[in-house]
Design a protein around this nucleic acid. Structure first.
Lengths: 350, 350
DNA sequence: CTGAAAGCGCTTACAG
DNA sequence: CTGAAAGCGCTTACAG
């Protein structure tokens, strides 16, 4: 009658808490307590349960735990991509800290696609994450409404001030870019080119561009339309191409500002390839201060984005919020201007 | 009696399937079927349930679903780090494909620490992932036993042949490195230096090193102990330092092989800084073919690691295995030798 | 095609 | 300090 199967199955199957309870000769409830709050059971019981766990190789089912306790000890993150070092570094630090705090990370990449981002936010929330980490602040009312409704602690990163009232941890992109531009203006530059990462659904990129424009405006300058090249993805190759078309469109620029380091790497490579000396003929700046920035020849003037710190703080604050504590609405981290050798005082015009 | 609260709570709370069933005037079971297999209920019922879902803004609780169905539609991955582009790219592709397949990714970084790796594997398995993606093959018997016991489809990546009988998707690191070395030997190089990423718990790195040694041996050459520099993390800065100490220890090398591109970037920068012409005075090679490799000056000779394809295939195969299909034990992807300008025929010795 | 009921593996008031 | 029982929100045989 297939009965021979039964006992075998039982011994092969993953042991459950009832098995532990039986072996330890206590009730299911007590076994549960012995594991989660050992201090509230007697020493002997705690010890017996501990041994039973060991013998059976018991490992709790976190799904069941999540369903009955309403806490999954899981947090979700949606980033645009891992192909950009600052996001990879931020996610890495986020996960490391979450791990220390006993949380597991569920990760999605939206590829800068708002539709996809929404789908992924929804999937993570359905999955029952206890908290959610987002990037930036460019969300449709629909998405925001959905998030609010779920009542799950949510914060956003890489910006420090959310117009949507999400707690934010990051830098002031506008201001950092403004300062960087002022530095170049101080060197006498007047003719600027900008290579910007996609501005679509990307408020970090927008803010960086606006920072440039605002600083120029303050000095009575403006950024001619043809001096702005927008690329779809912040890659080295795109930076290279953008630099080429920038110089083709407007030969007179003395300073080229890139909204990410990766694009600046490409821009610099192209500049050198086409016989421009950096910084003698043309100054180039980046943004992010990734490792390669300091190793280029010449090393790149850029702005630090403290990605690992953002990730770490996001973990800390989110878990804090999950535990019912209030967390700061704004956490603004320093975005230091790193002056290296890719920029110099503009040559007196010939 | 606090009764005023009750109705408010009900309407605020996240709706559950019972609410949908009530509104659609069907049983819980039917509502469930209408959502998961609409074809087995009547059209009218399917439609009524659909509307109820819409009206209530119902969104299923995947935790409950997972517990009752035994399928979490979740897969776990443990990678050493996201700070290395090939892992970041692999994870990105893995997640994208999983997303298309209706799965969510749970991600951990082990930081090349076997203890941490084990803890994270255990945490993911407890979490109830349906499948597991690992990197490499350097696992203790304890870890392997634990994994086998869980009976969860598991595969490993970035290698193509597992000594532990895990299905593997990746490249033949040994052979690719062997070929790269043969190419340099063919250019007349005889005095080699190697900058290796940590060899500890890193079989990819070991295989790459062994590939060099084996190719040299075939020609009767050997790698002197002082010509091998091992670094703890594959960073640009470490590559730079390693190059410096390599030249200090053994001035005569004509070819420096780095087991990752990032280190090659540093090595090349240091070579140029210290007045060595690449490739005229010294040839340098990398491994991985990350974007920057092709943009360096000179562009780097390296080996392609198809990280995105590895991630994509891992997703496909794992889901296939979860669905009960057999999957290949070995999926060997091409690791093309990319010859660029950082290598050239060795100068006739003066 | 549909419904009532058991069950997934835990946690947690409620009694003692 | 401990146990019996209800419950978390779904799915899925089992009957009809």
């Amino acid at each position: 009658m297939g009965d021979q199967q039964k006992p075998k199955r039982l011994s092969l199957a993953r042991p459950k808490l009832t098995d532990v309870a039986k072996l330890a000769n206590v009730s299911l409830a007590t076994a549960s307590r012995a594991l989660s709050q050992p201090s509230i059971v007697s020493h002997e019981v705690a010890e017996r349960v501990r041994q039973a766990v060991e013998i059976l190789g018991y490992t709790p089912d976190r799904t069941a735990k999540a369903l009955s306790s309403g806490r999954s000890h899981t947090i979700g993150a949606v980033v645009p991509t891992l192909g950009t070092a600052i996001f990879a570094d931020g996610v890495e630090a986020l996960q490391e800290r979450l791990d220390q705090l006993g949380y597991i990370l569920l990760l999605s990449n939206s590829q800068y696609d708002p539709q996809k981002e929404f789908r992924q936010i929804r999937a993570l929330l359905e999955q029952g994450v206890d908290g959610l980490v987002l990037v930036g602040d460019d969300f449709s009312p629909e998405v925001l409404a959905f998030i609010k409704k779920q009542n799950v602690p949510t914060l956003t990163t890489y910006i420090c001030d959310s117009k949507n009232d999400l707690p934010a941890i990051g830098i002031d992109n506008f201001n950092a870019s403004f300062k960087l531009t002022q530095y170049l203006l101080g060197l006498g530059h007047q003719r600027f080119g900008v290579i910007a990462n996609t501005l679509l659904s990307n408020d970090r990129s927008q803010a960086r561009l606006e920072g440039v424009v605002a600083a120029l405006k303050e000095t009575g300058l403006k950024l001619p339309r043809e001096n702005l090249i927008e690329v779809e993805r912040p890659t080295i190759v795109n930076g290279r191409r953008a630099f080429a078309s920038l110089l083709a469109a407007s030969a007179g620029v003395t300073a080229v500002m890139c909204t990410t380091d990766a694009m600046a790497v490409g821009a610099m490579a192209e500049a050198i390839r086409t016989g421009h000396r950096v910084p003698h003929d043309i100054s180039i700046t980046g943004f992010d201060n990734v490792e390669i920035a300091g190793e280029l020849d010449p090393p790149l003037t850029t702005v630090t984005v403290p990605a690992a710190e953002i990730g770490r703080l996001a973990a800390d604050q989110l878990v804090s919020a999950i535990e019912g504590h209030a967390i700061p609405q704004t956490t603004k981290l320093a975005a230091a201007l790193i002056v290296r050798d890719s920029t110099q005082r503009v040559k007196p015009s010939k």
